[in-house]
């Protein structure tokens, strides 16, 4: 018996004019899997994410979520099916408070009471309670990242896409994020894009490497990080 994968893409391609940013990607993530996506800047990782969330409609190919074809569906419908994303450039409600940001995320399809409970849980879990009433636009960059992660958690999706969650975080925050990701991973699947190799080592099991819009290699983390091709295009010589 074969299980239907949580997310599956077949031949997903995204062209902008003459540039092929994402080239014929076949990619599969199972229920409750934790997958890391690495690769050079400009390899097409963020663009690939956008084709998954409906922010971009792939030029060709298909995206299946639990067997449903969601290729090019509107973002809000994909979100309702259970995909949440923390984007690379923080997308938060700058003029609202931290609590309001998370409430808007928690509020869809829940009773007010349930939504409030979710908000409190998320605030506690991410240690945002102290700054719950601050306006998000006035927070530091790293804090806004936490707020965005909070909105994604409050949405309670089955698949969470994190585009560079550790960017701009201090070492301890990175450690905390890695712990959080493992905790989230008990019940939810994640795909994490990150350049911080320390962080990747903390969380990764299977790693997919993108290069020039294609998958260069997909394997166990140790094998990927010692792969010569990966070192050449991405890690550089210093990487251990």
């Amino acid at each position: 018996m074969t299980l239907v994968p949580l997310l599956q893409t077949t031949g997903v391609t995204m062209r902008f004019g003459g540039v092929t940013a994402v080239d014929n990607i076949d990619f599969t993530v199972g229920e409750c899997e934790l997958r890391c996506l690495i690769g050079p800047n400009g390899a097409g990782k963020s663009t690939f994410f956008k084709t998954l969330t409906g922010q971009l409609r792939p030029t060709s190919g298909h995206v299946l979520f639990r067997g449903h074809d969601i290729t090019g569906a509107p973002s809000h419908e994909i979100a309702r099916l259970g995909i949440g994303i923390k984007t690379q450039v923080p997308n938060v409600f700058n003029g609202l408070s931290v609590r309001e940001n998370i409430f808007v995320a928690a509020g869809r399809g829940k009773s007010i009471r349930h939504a409030r409970e979710t908000v409190d849980q998320v605030l506690t879990r991410l240690k945002l309670t102290d700054i719950a009433n601050r306006i998000v636009g006035q927070l530091a960059h790293g804090q806004r990242q936490w707020v965005e992660i909070g909105t994604v958690l409050a949405q309670e999706p089955d698949l969470i896409l994190l585009d560079e969650p550790a960017a701009g975080m201090t070492y301890e925050e990175v450690v905390r994020t890695s712990e959080l990701i493992r905790e989230i991973n008990r019940a939810q699947a994640l795909i994490v894009v990150e350049h911080d190799m320390q962080f990747i080592r903390m969380i990764a099991r299977t790693v997919t490497v993108f290069n020039r819009g294609r998958i260069l290699i997909e394997d166990d983390v140790e094998r990927v990080l010692t792969n010569q091709a990966v070192r050449d295009v991405y890690l550089g010589k210093a990487a251990a």
Binding site: G39, P40, N41, Q88, H141, E164, A167, G168, H195, M197, V233, Y234, L235, G236, K237, A238, A239
Partner: peptide, 14 residues
């Protein structure tokens, strides 16, 4: 201000 944020390791090295 945080020049390495979101930058691949080999460019950070550079």
């Amino acid at each position: 201000d945080e020049p390495t944020e979101g930058i691949q390791p080999s460019i950070v090295e550079e």
